[in-house]
Each structure stands twice: as structure tokens, then as C-alpha cells.
Design a protein around this nucleic acid. Structure first.
Length: 838
RNA sequence: GCCGGAGUGGCGAAAUUGGUAUACGCGCACGACUCAAAAUCGUGUGGAGCAAUCCAUGAGAGUUCGAGUCUCUCCUCCGGCACCA
């Protein structure tokens, strides 16, 4: 009897599948298409992490099932290879990032192939390949051409350790998401993409797509669309006015002061509005506030500081004069940088009022009905309530009051509605070497020419992007890709210049518009640039004329099922939706779920170290998947990663659990070695029910990603089969076909041993018979007052009368009913009978 | 603070959606095989009790013949956002 040896059968079938191109997607097919996608990995120097195989195996199970169901499946793989770790390694070792990338990609490829994943390797894309990034640059040029890219000097998040500017999404708690160093604010010229122009569509178009609710809400909250009103407050005794912005104008009768951000122009020295006696205090406060970093502000917590400006604003609703204060809790980047203080119904305003002895007025009565004076912060409520002390708003619900007063203020000309978003334009340049060069040049002559032109709209010579960014000229499409040149040093500089800036020969070019002297943009794109659109390239990976042929895009899109990490919800997932919508608008990609790239999105949980802590090199708890494959086999690793717990949940690694799964596979193997297979069906009704239920359970669980219970169902079936002396051929084959997506090598081997000449993955997915799922024999539970007291075997279709008679006949039940009056009998067909007694 | 999600054996977790709580796996205990150990196989395994029984799904209340599942109040943990007005 041969024993189970994955080291022999796994490489054998991997080679066979690859040589036969069994998992290659067909460009044209009469079958329906199915596109499964996983987030392509960054090929780090550490090699594959044990977290990688979980989502890859999960969608591999799906891909294999779909093929057996008769679909033309696209399940592609590639590498997102630009990025900091490779560049940092290059700085340290002097090796070229390209060389390092090639080496890492080779390692990843070997490791991934050993897992038996059914990727279509022929369609592999690598973002650092010039034939690929040529189209990444092309997309940037299109964004530029349509006026969606602009260069601006702005305060950006600067990581002093990575020496790189970060997008808002890359900053977590004031620190660099990648290295944890505190982020500084720096003024820098950066390229930005106008993702905000798509804010509404990015929020609204989520409705029809199948994403988990938490991903949708997280994206919607990140976009943060709110209806505001900007209210004009004349500054008493001047011709000036201050525009405060609020989402809660309903509480405006409760306003007792106005607060401006320290950067607000109204209180600047140049304006000279501040009365002489307040000038010194104000200037001191502003200077101190400006010096504070974000970290210092955060460290202060909610402690409020501020200074009275000596000015008053007029609330025209009730003709009250409100003192104008300056405080750094008001942010210049939010709204108009000026707020009206309603201390009764805003916690920050309450804290401010308390700190400076300003009056507190109640204008809302909350659900608790409290109408007393507001003296404690717990009484300050913001979410629900009814208006009081607010003249014509009195008695109204706050939401209704908000709508009414917005209309009123607008009609009076005192306020103006505004839709605002939390989402900011996307900082799209990096001062680094290992990224796609931004395909633009700067030409001084063209800049002068554009600046001198009076009517820009009539200009046909320059594109929207060129008019928007005078002097910046697009590299002609036929000159793409702008390839990365060889440099001697990859080190970024503290001045924030890319190492490319030192390459004089590369930087100096002639202007494609006027032929005059020009210089290249030396910033590169962020690592998100290549991952924005990679799933489009898989449809047609070798195309040299377009990012992909329209007919191939029309055939394969949308992605039917995209699985990835939660950490990308407000990064890659949002960015790539934006880019897709843009490409849709310029008619490069087809109509797809409206204009959404992904029909269904799911996400996987992280795999943690054995103690439940995050796996990391420093903790020394990293598990190498290749070692698991060597010791237990790929089928064991695959099955274990799916069986270990709910797919969406983070879960600690447990090597003992791996051994348990290996034991299961050995048992399956031995059962097939030992058991006699007979052609005739001989299983009894109960065994048939189990088989058909397992087919249903496994089929359904793959769709709902309950892989852990699917594996458990396979184990139960296998345990039953192992106990039988003979197994019918059809049962054995059904079992193998169910097991095949999970443990493909073992299933293929046993399938062939049954005499099949074609792969099990060319066989059909098993069907089940609804009639056989229903058991003929059941265990009927007998309850007294809802407590289980007995159970009896009965035919599934037992009637209430028969059940009652049978139950009463049981001595135990008879004892319980002795001398009691039965008030009611609850009968649930096929399940239980419950006697309700006194 | 706000928005999500979750609390079930020693551990990872199941529970047909209101109907036998703890499936499946790990671990543990005992037994078989062995000179012995590992591996393997078998049996047992929520807690208390000799037993009949009783008690158990984060805590407390409620609805119901019946609640892990529904409702309310509270506690804890995880993820996201955050002086966003």
C-alpha cells in the first residue's frame, strides 16, 4: 500500500497542468467568462509570507470550481514591483533595483508555483517593465491632457525618514504609515490629481456593486460629503465680514462667539483690523500657534487655548454682537477656517466657552428631556433633539430646522450653501528613483507664451493640462515610455529632490512644442500608479498599441470577484475606482456595472503569529510558507489556511492545526488505497443524504467564503467513507470532485488512479438532488415547557397526532406529564414536539 | 467622541437563521501496538453531582411554548475615522 507523499505527486501535477496550459484563459470562447482577481503582490526581498496564500487559495478554489462549472476563467497574477523597500535595499547594497526586482520576482514565482495555484502565468504583468509602465505614463498624460493633473505648492506630509512626500491616505495618526516616523509639514511643489472631481460618483456608484457594507461605509466616510452653509457675519465697525462655515445652522440662535483659525486672513497684521490694545496679544498667539507642529497640537489633547481679537461679529438672525476669538482648534483647512461658537451643542465650543468664561445657551432639548442650564459637558448633545429659544424654529426637530434655516439664510442673502468633502486631491509625485518617471518637461519659453495669452479657452495649441500648468509640456505619446536612466546613487536628498535630478544628460531635453531648451520632471509616480489599472492589462497583456484591446476589455470586464486587504479600502481600491471612471469617461474602457471596475469585492483576515501578535521579523514569529510546503505539502497548507477560521477574520497561526489537516489528507489517501470500489450504488438512504448535503454545503460555502465549514463538511464525509468496507464509484468520484479545488494535487492523483485520462479539472462540478437532501428518518425532540426531555427516531413526515402519541408513550415523558394539565402542544414538523404544562 | 465588527469549551471555532448549544479540528486523558518512545489506531472529553438532575453562549433585564440567535441597558476587545464645526 503506497502512502501519501505530496513531495512526489505535487510537482508532478504542477508540471502537467503547466505543460497542458490547463488554466490558461481563452481570448475567445463560447463559454461564459469569469474573472477572479487577487491583489498582486509586492515582491519583497523576504519572499512569500504565510499571509499571501490565504486569499490566493480562496480565489483559487473559486476559479477551479468555476472551470468545473464550465466557465472560461481568468485568474491572473503579476507583480507590483516599484516601491521603497527595493530602493532602500539598492541604496544599502549598490545593486540596481531592476536586478533586485528580477531576483525577487523569480523567488516569488517559484514559491507561488509550488502552492499549486491555478494562475494563468502567461498573462503575468510586472509594473516595472517598461512595456507596462509605458501605459501607466500614458494614463498620466491623459489625466494631464484633461486638466486632472496640476502642480501646486502646498503643505504636504513629509516623512523625514523615507525622505518622501505622502498622500493623506498614507498618514496614520500623524506618522508615516510605512515606517512610523512622525510626519512633518513641508511646503513643496507637488503634482496632484483631481480625485475630488469624482467624489460624488465614487460615493454614489457604490450602491449597485457587491461590496461588504463596512467597505462601502468606510469609503463613503472617507469621501465625507456634507452639506454646509457659509454664513456671513459683518464685523462691527468695519466694512469687513467674516464667513463662518457650519453644518449645523439650526443651532445658530445659540451662538455666543466666533472663532477664527490663527491663519485666517481677517486677523493678519496686514489687514490691520485688530484694535491697538489687543494687537500684541493676538500677534503673540498667532506666532506661537504657527510654530506648533501637528504632534504638539495633538499632544495638548482637547485643552483649549485662544485669544480675544477685540472685534465683534453680528449675528443677523437676532442682532447679537458676538466676540471674535482666535484659536488653533479651528483648522484653516476645514470649511472657511472660521466657526461660530455654539457651546450648548458642540463639545469643542463648550470646552472653549468654559475655558474663557463665555456664556452657554440651550437651544436644543435632547431625547432625555433635560431643559436645565448646561453646566456639564455630558449635557452637551449634538445628534438629536427639538429646537427651543430659537424664535421661528421652536418646536421643530433639529433636522427639519436645519433645512428651514438654510433656506431662510440663503433667501436673505446671509448664507450660501456649499457641498464639502473630506477627500482631498491626491498627491501624486514622489522624490524617489524607483518609480515611473512623470512624462512631462518644463519649458520656460512655452511658459512665457502661455502666460501672455489672454483668452486661454480659445487656445488650441496647448492642452488643458498645459494651460493649467504653464510651462509644463507633455512628452508626446510616441516617445513613451520615458525610461528610468541608470544613476550612480539612489539616495534621495534632504532638499527633497529625486536622485534623477542629478542626471544632467537625462534631464536636459528639447521642448516637444517649441524645440527650445527644456528639462524633464524628475519626480516619479507613487507606487499606486502601477496598481491602478493592472487588472485591465491582464485582459491583453502583450498589447503594444493600447493598454489593452477594446474587444478584450469588453469581453473580460468587469472583474467578477476581487479579493484584497481591508487596508486598501481608502487607498488602492478607491484610487483604482477613480482611474477606471476616468478611463471610462475618455472611452478607453467599456461600460461595466455602470462605470465600476469590480462587480464583487471581498476581503481576507490577516494571519497572525502563534501568540496572536502580528508576524514580524523582529518578533521572530514569521512562518515561511515554503517550509510548510516542504514539510507537509501544498495541499495541507492550502487546506489549513482555509480551515483555520472564518476567512474575513484575523487568526493566529497554529502548527498543530497544520498537522491535523495533514492527518485528514492521509486518511483520505489511505481510504482510497484500502477501500474496494464497486460500480453499483449500495449506500443506504442516510449515506446518500449525507453525500448530497455535502455537495450542497461545499458548493454554497465556496460562494459565501465559508471555507472553514466547507472543509469540515468534507472531513465529515471522509470520516463516514473511511468507516465503510466498500465505496461506490460514483460516491468516490463525487467526493474527489468536491475536494479537488481545495487539495488539487491529491484529488488529481486519486482521480487518475480511478482510470480517468483527463484532468479532474476538466470534469464537471457535482450536482445534488434536492429530494435526497431531505432526510427520510429524523430525530424528533420531545420538550416539556421548552426543555429537552427526550428524543425519538421517526420518519421525517410524521404528523402531529402520531408524534404526540409516540411521545406520550415514552415512560420518561409520561412521568413528566403525570398529574399535569397539558395547556398547549407546539409541533414543529420534522423537528420537535413541545408539551406546555402547568 | 463618531462609524463598523466581535464576545460560545483548555485552544481555532460550528450551530439548517427562533427549535437537541459546543459540529469539525487542535489539545488533553486512558487503552491497544512497542523492549521503549514517536507515529498510528480505539475510547472519552463544557462545569457540578454517586445519581436523578441542575448550571452554562461577556453582564443584566425583556419578548416567546422555546433565545447563542430578536429588543433594551451596560461591560470588554478588535478595525477605521477624528478638535471636520
Amino acid at each position: 500500500m503506497a502512502s501519501y507523499d505530496p513531495n512526489i505527486i505535487e510537482p508532478k501535477w504542477q508540471t502537467y497542468w503547466e505543460e497542458k496550459k490547463l488554466f490558461a484563459a481563452a481570448d475567445r470562447s463560447s463559454k461564459p467568462k469569469y474573472y477572479c482577481l487577487i491583489e498582486f503582490p509586492y515582491p519583497s526581498g523576504e519572499g512569500l509570507h504565510v499571509g499571501h496564500p490565504r486569499p490566493y487559495t480562496a480565489l483559487d478554489v473559486l476559479a477551479r470550481k468555476r472551470r468545473m462549472q464550465g466557465y472560461n476563467v481568468l485568474y491572473p497574477i503579476g507583480f507590483d514591483a516599484f516601491g521603497l523597500p527595493t530602493e532602500n535595499y539598492a541604496i544599502k547594497t549598490g545593486a540596481h533595483p531592476q536586478t533586485i526586482t528580477e531576483r525577487n520576482v523569480a523567488t516569488f514565482t517559484a514559491q507561488l508555483k509550488a502552492l499549486g495555484l491555478s494562475f494563468d502565468w502567461d498573462r503575468q504583468v510586472v509594473t516595472t517593465d517598461p512595456a507596462y509602465y509605458r501605459w501607466t505614463q500614458w494614463i498620466f498624460l491623459k489625466l494631464f491632457e484633461h486638466g486632472l493633473a496640476y502642480k501646486a505648492k502646498m503643505p504636504i506630509n513629509w516623512c523625514p525618514s523615507c525622505r518622501i512626500g505622502l498622500a493623506n491616505e498614507e498618514v496614520a495618526g500623524g506618522a508615516c504609515e510605512r515606517c512610523g516616523t512622525a510626519v512633518e509639514q513641508r511646503e513643496k511643489e507637488q503634482w496632484l490629481l483631481k480625485i475630488t472631481r469624482y467624489a460624488d460618483r465614487l460615493a454614489d456608484d457604490l450602491a449597485p456593486v457587491d461590496y461588504p457594507e463596512r467597505i462601502k461605509t468606510q469609503q463613503i466616510n472617507w469621501i465625507g460629503r456634507k452639506e454646509w452653509i457659509d454664513i456671513d457675519y459683518p464685523v462691527v465697525g468695519t466694512n469687513e465680514s467674516v464667513v463662518v462655515s457650519t453644518t449645523r445652522p439650526d443651532t445658530n440662535f445659540g451662538a455666543t462667539f466666533v472663532v477664527l483659525a490663527p491663519e485666517h486672513p481677517l486677523v493678519s497684521a496686514e489687514k490691520g483690523l485688530i484694535p491697538a490694545e489687543r494687537r500684541k496679544a493676538v500677534e503673540q498667539y498667532i506666532a506661537a500657534a504657527r510654530k506648533k507642529t501637528d504632534q504638539e497640537r495633538m499632544a495638548e489633547g482637547r485643552k483649549k487655548t485662544g485669544v480675544f481679537a477685540g472685534l465683534y461679529g453680528l449675528n443677523r438672525l437676532n442682532n447679537k454682537q458676538l466676540p471674535i476669538w482666535i484659536s488653533d482648534f479651528v483648522l484653516t483647512t476645514v470649511g472657511t477656517g472660521a466657526v461660530v461658537g455654539v457651546p450648548g451643542h458642540d463639545r469643542r465650543d463648550f470646552e472653549f466657552a468654559t475655558a474663557f468664561g463665555l456664556p452657554v445657551i440651550r437651544v436644543v432639548v435632547g431625547r432625555d428631556g433635560d431643559t436645565s442650564d448646561l453646566t456639564r459637558i455630558e449635557q452637551v448633545q449634538e445628534a438629536e433633539g427639538t429646537m427651543v429659544h430659537s424664535e421661528f424654529l421652536d418646536g421643530l426637530d433639529i433636522h427639519r430646522a436645519t433645512a428651514i434655516i438654510m433656506d431662510y439664510l440663503e433667501k436673505k442673502g446671509w448664507g450660501k450653501r456649499a457641498t464639502r468633502y473630506n477627500l482631498r486631491d491626491w498627491v501624486f509625485s514622489r522624490q524617489r528613483y524607483w518609480g515611473e518617471p512623470i512624462p512631462l518637461v518644463f519649458c520656460g519659453a512655452c511658459q512665457d507664451k502661455i502666460k501672455k495669452q489672454k483668452s486661454k479657452s480659445k487656445n488650441k495649441e496647448y492642452s488643458q493640462g498645459e494651460l493649467l500648468n504653464p510651462g509644463w509640456i507633455a512628452v508626446p505619446e510616441n516617445q513613451l515610455p520615458v525610461a528610468l536612466p541608470e544613476v550612480k546613487k539612489y539616495e534621495p536628498t534632504d532638499t527633497g529632490e529625486s536622485p534623477l535630478a542629478t542626471m544632467t544628460g537625462w534631464v536636459t531635453v528639447t521642448c516637444p512644442r517649441c524645440g527650445g531648451p527644456a528639462r524633464r520632471e524628475t519626480d516619479t509616480m507613487p507606487n499606486w500608479a502601477g496598481s491602478n489599472w493592472y487588472f485591465l492589462r491582464y485582459a491583453d497583456p502583450a498589447n503594444a498599441k493600447a493598454l489593452a484591446a477594446p474587444d478584450q476589455l469588453a469581453y473580460w470586464l468587469p472583474v467578477d470577484w476581487y479579493n484584497g486587504g481591508m487596508e486598501h479600502t481608502t487607498l488602492h481600491l478607491l484610487y483604482s475606482r477613480f482611474i477606471y471612471k476616468f478611463l471610462y469617461d475618455i472611452k478607453v474602457v467599456p461600460e461595466s456595472c455602470g462605470n465600476e471596475p469590480y462587480r464583487k469585492r471581498t476581503s481576507h483576515g490577516l494571519i497572525l503569529g502563534e501568540g496572536g501578535e502580528k508576524m514580524s521579523k523582529s518578533r521572530g514569529n514569521v512562518v515561511n510558507p515554503s517550509e510548510i510546503v516542504a514539510a507537509y505539502g501544498a495541499d495541507t497548507l492550502r487546506l489549513y489556511e482555509l480551515f483555520m477560521g472564518p476567512f474575513e477574520q484575523a487568526i493566529p497561526w497554529d502548527t498543530a492545526g497544520v498537522r491535523g489537516v495533514r492527518r485528514f489528507l492521509e486518511k483520505v489517501w489511505d481510504t482510497f488505497e484500502r477501500s474496494e470500489l464497486v460500480s453499483a450504488d449500495h449506500e443506504d438512504a442516510a449515506a446518500k443524504t449525507l453525500l448530497h448535503r455535502t455537495v450542497k454545503k461545499v458548493s454554497d460555502d465556496i460562494e459565501t467564503q465559508d471555507y472553514n465549514t466547507a472543509v469540515s463538511a468534507l472531513m465529515i464525509l471522509s470520516n463516514t467513507l473511511a468507516g465503510q468496507p466498500t465505496i461506490s464509484r460514483s460516491t468516490a468520484e463525487t467526493f474527489l470532485r468536491l475536494l479537488a479545488p481545495f487539495a488539487p494535487h491529491l484529488a488529481e492523483e486519486r482521480w487518475r488512479k480511478l482510470g480517468h485520462r483527463r484532468s479532474i479539472f476538466q470534469a464537471s462540478w457535482p450536482a445534488f438532488d434536492e429530494k435526497l437532501i431531505v432526510a427520510t428518518e429524523i430525530t424528533l425532540v420531545v420538550q416539556i415547557n421548552g426543555k429537552v426531555r427526550d428524543s425519538l427516531h421517526a420518519p421525517a413526515d410524521i404528523t402531529e397526532q402520531v408524534a404526540e402519541r409516540a411521545a406520550r408513550a415514552r415512560p420518561k415523558i409520561a412521568g413528566y406529564l403525570e398529574g399535569k394539565q397539558v395547556k398547549n402542544i407546539i409541533f414543529v414538523p420534522g423537528r420537535l414536539i413541545n408539551f406546555v404544562v402547568e
